[in-house]
């Protein structure tokens, strides 16, 4: 049903720390490997060994160089998957009900059994989080690993999205943004978390922590006590250096 729930019990989502992401693509590939056998898989690859390889990815890692006058340029890696928006335009435009936002946890999903592949949702999403499956003729997207985070056969601490459990740098966090006491809410509150593209008024659930201020202190230098070998020999000649 493409009516958005008035309110979801939980707001599950990701908090991505741009201060820590090194752009290694581990999350993107692990996502692919889990989800290609997952609830909305397979995720196709077109011309996998050919001249123009491409395919379905629920998560892609971009990178940018930022230039600010008077500062050293900065390279920022930027992973991006579905933000599970509260006011998800991709859901409301869907004519079939294939796009849905779950009322229990806010996860936005596409039902591949119902989708007609009109692509309108991918036009509606400002973030480029929807991926078209040419073989199945249906839309796909990040599932927040809904088939992993609720799988009780997986040990509880590993019951997090694949991209989170695999991230070597620990740049990705998963949790309930509706709960102010959750890890993600606390981290977000403490670190100036950002919405992507606030003008689009989608109220993204996923949040990004911006790169932190660089720790370059003011001018500082050591007081020299000696300046050449001769000085040093004079000064240290007969000192007892043992503790």
């Amino acid at each position: 049903m493409t009516c958005l729930p008035d309110k979801t019990d939980k707001k599950l989502g990701l908090l991505i720390d741009l201060d820590i992401c090194v752009g290694c693509h581990a999350c993107a590939v692990n996502c692919k490997e889990w989800n290609t056998s997952g609830i909305t898989g397979p995720m196709e690859d077109i011309k996998p060994y050919g001249d123009d390889p491409s395919g379905v990815w629920y998560n892609r890692i971009h990178s940018y160089e930022f230039k600010k006058p008077g500062e050293v340029d900065r390279t920022v890696y930027f992973p991006k998957s579905c933000l599970h928006c509260e006011d998800a335009p991709c859901v409301t435009v869907c004519p079939t009900g294939a796009s849905l936002k779950r009322s229990e946890d806010g996860i936005v999903l596409v039902n591949p059994d119902v989708c007609i592949g009109c692509k309108l949702c991918s036009w509606a999403c400002p973030y480029g989080a929807r991926e078209y499956d040419t073989t199945g003729g249906v839309m796909q997207k990040c599932t927040l690993c809904v088939d992993k985070i609720y799988d009780e056969t997986i040990p509880e601490e590993r019951r997090v999205p694949s991209c989170v459990s695999t991230c070597p740098a620990g740049a990705r966090h998963f949790g309930d943004f509706a709960d102010p006491e959750s890890n993600v809410s606390k981290l977000a509150a403490a670190n100036d978390a950002r919405d992507l593209f606030p003008e689009m008024e989608t109220k993204p659930v996923n949040q990004y922590l911006p790169p932190r201020k660089r720790q370059i202190h003011k001018e500082k230098s050591l007081n020299h006590k000696v300046s050449n070998v001769k000085d040093a020999m004079l000064r240290w000649a007969k000192l007892d250096f043992t503790g």
């Binding site: 990178s63 940018y64 600010k68 006058p69 390279t75 920022v76 973030y127 790169p211």
Partner: peptide, 13 residues
């Protein structure tokens, strides 16, 4: 779009 309007001008790398 990147949520980083206060970081200067961004160019894709």
């Amino acid at each position: 779009a990147l949520g980083l309007s206060d970081f200067g001008k961004a160019k894709p790398f």
